[in-house]
Design a protein around this nucleic acid. Structure first.
Lengths: 212, 212
DNA sequence: GTCTATAGGGCGATAGAC
DNA sequence: GTCTATCGCCCTATAGAC
């Protein structure tokens, strides 16, 4: 499949030799998944290390501390979220040109697609719930402000339209994290809610709920 | 102020002698506040104990384990939430009778008032984000299902109306937890969003944001 | 019923070899 | 750059006195 370096063979699990930048990205992706599931406090640097196939002290060394690792995770998540929204806006044009629903629908679709990036949106969500943490809270307020500014200034949404869009996003995060899809086959009410909240993405959510 | 028992004087801080049921309620209220701020993993039984003015081992003894304490907290929170909604429905009548907005507005007002109970809604919110936890996750799915069932069957909302109501609630929780109100005076965008998301409750939120 | 003392385990971070 | 070994703290839970 992928190229194996001359030194190969003795290196850990999934990770054969690679550029340090790639390895940093690998650890960030692993950390995103772990923080997304258990939150900042619930996740351990050892869980991240095992998920990335490196040693626990190396994870800490790489980022300085667990808190800085979390800040890097949410920073990266925010970057991707904003970039994805900008692509959507570029495709659909801002709200002024061809109606509001063109942009919001396109952005909502982008948002749902970001769910495929395991833990990315849920790491942000966990962060949003830690507003009283001195460092993390400040960072999350700033990030939330960037999202709101994009919706207003770049997507061209009104305050009310932006509010509704954000509310839908928060519900989506909650439903995914709750893994409601787990009982979608046995609970008619959950099936009804999910069908309503995720018109076209039921299969995607179902996949996320079971793949553990 | 309140009655002091004969033994008084030597007992801890805020808590003079009281019935064990009252003390259990005191600990539950303290735990609700702590779990609401830091979540299940971030909260420690010692923080709960200090907030309640009792010893840490006593908190554990009382509920068996930290996990059972959390389950008691979210169980109590859910009870109160459902009871509050039922009062609102009783006052406004279900959606069929006098239009949908009568019930939803009354329930939304009730919901905002529950924010005064420190940590009650945020403990639930933290729980919703732990859907992958075996015991807690199952309990939270069940609780969420109860809320949805109430909105549909008792409040008489359509699936779409229930979805919008839930989405607004999730955004409200997020904004409160983020403590966006903290910067409402220096950040015009935050002020705009909060004014839009919390039409009549800006002062309430402001109070929550600063009182720490 | 409630406390003090403490055991036992896990976690983040550091030291130092390779 | 990455690992192994390990320290020291903090946290949950138990034991046992009052």
């Amino acid at each position: 499949m992928s190229s194996v370096t001359p030194r190969g063979a003795a290196t850990p699990a999934a990770a054969t030799r690679m550029r340090s930048e790639d390895r940093r990205e690998l650890v960030l992706a692993a950390a995103t998944a772990v923080f997304g599931e258990r939150g900042y406090f619930g996740a351990t640097t050892d869980q991240v290390a095992k998920a990335a196939g490196v040693s626990q002290p190396y994870v800490v060394r790489m980022f300085g501390s667990k808190e800085e690792l979390f800040l890097a995770v949410v920073g990266r998540a925010l970057e991707r979220l904003l970039a994805t929204f900008r692509s959507a806006i570029a495709e659909a044009g801002p709200a002024g040109s061809s109606g509001v629903t063109a942009v919001t629908d396109r952005m909502a679709q982008s948002y749902a697609e970001l769910l495929a990036d395991r833990g990315l949106l849920l790491s942000l969500m966990h962060g949003f719930l830690l507003g009283t943490e001195p460092v993390i809270g400040e960072r999350m307020r700033d990030g939330f402000g960037q999202i709101y500014a994009l919706l207003r200034d770049e997507a061209g949404l009104s305050p009310e339209e932006a509010r509704v869009f954000l509310a839908d996003g928060m519900l989506l995060n909650t439903l995914v994290s709750l893994q409601l899809a787990r009982e979608v086959d046995t609970d008619a009410a959950f099936a009804e809610l999910l069908a309503c909240a995720l018109p076209t993405k039921l299969d995607l959510i179902r996949g996320l709920g079971t793949a553990r």
